[in-house]
Each structure stands twice: as C-alpha cells, then as structure tokens.
Amino acid sequence: MSMFSIAANEWARLFLSSRGWLAICAFALIWIVFLAYVIAPAAQYMSSDDFGLIFAALFARFGANTLANWESNEMALYWIFALYLLPFFTMISAADQIASDKTRGTMRFLVLRTSRTQVFFGRFLGQYLIQLFIVLITLCSVFALIAIKAPDGLSIAISEAPIVVINLALVLLPYVALMALVSVLASTARQATAFAIIGWIVLWFLLGYVQGKFGPIPILNWVLPGSQLSSLVRLGHWDTLSLAPIPLLHTVVLLTLGWIAIRRCDL
C-alpha cells in the first residue's frame, strides 16, 4: 500500500511543482519542434517516389530497412526516433528518484513510516508510469499530426500503435531502473544523470576492449541497457517482441542492484 502512495506522489512531484512543470514545458517545446520540423516533413518526403527511395536507402544504411514495411510513415518515423530519443529523456527526467531526498534528509522522514524497499520500488513504479504517460502523449501528438496532414492514414496508424507502445514500454523499463540505481548512489539528480552516462560509456569501452583482446564473446553484446535497439529496428511488427527478454533481464538486474544499494546505504 505504501508503495502505491509513494508512486502516486511521484506524479505530484512532477505536476505540482514548478520544477516539474518547467521540465514538462521544455520537453513539450522540444517535441513540438521535432514533430513539426522533423517528423512531419520527413513523412511527406517518404511519400514521394524519389525521396522515398532515398529515405529507404538511408534507413537501410542504419539497419532499419524494415521501416519501409510500416504502413504509416509517421508511425515509422516516430518509432525510430522515439526508440533512441526517449531513453535519453528518461535518463534526465527519472534521475531524482532518491538522490535529493537522501541528501536533504527527507528520506529519513519517509523511512520512519515505511521500508526502504517500498520507497525504492514506489519511486521506480511512479517514474515508470510517468515515462509511459510521455510515450502515450507523444504518440497522441503523432495521431494529431496524421489527422491534420493525412486523415485517411489515422486508422492504420492507430492499428500499429500497440506494437509501438508495448515495445517502447519495454525499452524504457531498464533506463528507469538504471536511474533508480544511480539515484541511490548520487547526491543530486544531475550527478545521477552524469553517473549513468559515464557508467554507460565506460562499460561500453570496457566491453569493446575485452572483446578486442579475447575475441568476440556474443553474450557481452547484450550487457548494456539499450543494447537490443540496433536489432530491434531491423525487426518489424510483432517480431519485435522476440527481443523482450533482454530489457526485462536488464531491469531485474538493475533493480536488484539498486535494492541492495538502498538497503545498505546510510541515510
């Protein structure tokens, strides 16, 4: 029960604070610009024969050659951009799950009333639901774009939406878990984001070094959160779920580490 109260309070932390609204407005502005000046014109170019071929060649170059199989151009573009952009937003917006409350001492007031476990998983759950909300809002904005530019394609886009939502929900899961872990170790939200980025890069170099020295070790290719993304864009429709165990496994490992960290840390 405490966990759900803590999770609900995460929404309040976002929507009832000026800092939360500032983050929402900043993201909304960036997204509107992105939608109007990247997704909308790109979808239009994809529809024209000449540019469509160029786009198909371009995406094929990046391994996303199945994008051409999506029936809605806007959904295809949203899919590829959301897949790479939303995790970065998550690493910023979900960075303050524990850090500042721990530094300020507010966490002490909470753990007198509930367990550290409930606080940790409650904050994680609240932040994850916020990320899902962002996915749904951005998706709705794409529907709005389609409704304005090409209303005939709306029903097709809506039919493709569940694949996108479920996949993005899986993709973002380990990033929220990663931020839960680093926010226990960091003193501020900014430091948590820095820890996550630096840690990710260091691990990426380390894995590359190990494979360079000892030869290819396939399992190491799946160690980093988001390591399945390049494979994911090559898959189409429900085939994408064949990679679902990877983010789920990442999430379990990261949450376990975070749970151990919060139980052991001094408040």
């Binding site: 932390r13 009832l16 604070s17 000026s18 800092r19 409350d101 300020r104 001492g105 007031f109 007198l112």
Partner: peptide
C-alpha cells in the same frame, strides 16, 4: 509507534 526529529533533515522545499 516510533517517531523522530532527525538532525539536519528537511522537508522538500517544493511542496
């Protein structure tokens, strides 16, 4: 059953 006033613990200034 247990309550405390911890030293140097502050409420969240945003709420």
């Amino acid at each position: 059953k247990l309550a405390a006033l911890p030293q140097d613990a502050h409420l969240d200034p945003r709420f």
